[in-house]
Design a protein around this nucleic acid. Sequence first.
DNA 1: TTAAACTGCGTACCATGGTACAGAGTCAAG
DNA 2: CTTGACTCTGTACCATGGTACGCAGTTTAA
Lengths: 142, 142
Amino acid sequence: MVQSQDLNFTISKLAAHCGVGVETVRFYQRNELLEIPQAQQGATRRYGQAHVERLQFIKKAQLAGFTLREIKQLIALDSTEERSQVLALAQERLQDIERKIIDLHDARDALSQLVNACQTGHAGPCPIIESFETSSSKNKVV
Amino acid sequence: MVQSQDLNFTISKLAAHCGVGVETVRFYQRNELLEIPQAQQGATRRYGQAHVERLQFIKKAQLAGFTLREIKQLIALDSTEERSQVLALAQERLQDIERKIIDLHDARDALSQLVNACQTGHAGPCPIIESFETSSSKNKVV
DNA sequence: TTAAACTGCGTACCATGGTACAGAGTCAAG
DNA sequence: CTTGACTCTGTACCATGGTACGCAGTTTAA
């Protein structure tokens, strides 16, 4: 039955194990993303499996593009049964991501065109700089 | 010959004309992205065409994904003839953008899969939350 | 046992791109 | 000439996601 409680990390071990800094762990604690453990050994707190999992949860959710604020909401929603709210949050996030992808595509296309122009053209003013200059009738950026 | 000097804006007119806030103009001045004009009328500065163009330059370069720091470099490079450095900067920017696009695609795919799972599945724990929980053998996010 | 290393706590600081506001001066219209 | 709107300057503050540091107390290894 010793299976999830066998970990007994100090804060620095926990941080190292999860690939974050000690200060980051404390930062999450301050921001109520990670519980301060009750378990102590003397004055030093001991962290267990649940803390490792929570840190991993945070990291994965960050990778999926959630902000810490949203992750906090997800954690709160997890303990309730508000599955539809989780879905709503995820859908919003998805729309954000899709919007950003479109923006970045636009930016990339404009910029790569400029880079090409700059590599191709041989004389005259730099087309990149030029294109940012006022919009008369020159290359348009975005 | 009066052709670029005919504008005579106060700071608030300039800001309004360019679609930014007065405080933003001052912010750019503090950060040496925009010159403080010599021209004054009494104690009040007067802004001209060059300022309008600079603000437009900044806005366009931002749209292309440059940071203010990079824009400052572009401005500096513009006055030199360091066209190759402009190109290098643009290429770096382009790589950043491409990296971000890939990351966002990954995030989007993972998340949309989760959203689908959540909409499809009818019972059991929320697949979105679940997928962030520790990585045993569940859906991987990113 | 003693020194190094770590812990906990509070607070300040970093970059990024602004936004807000106080206080003093100035400008323009009525 | 007064009133209200605007300007200038400096400084503080906002969110975001951490990072750093000082200090006192504790733990650990030699």
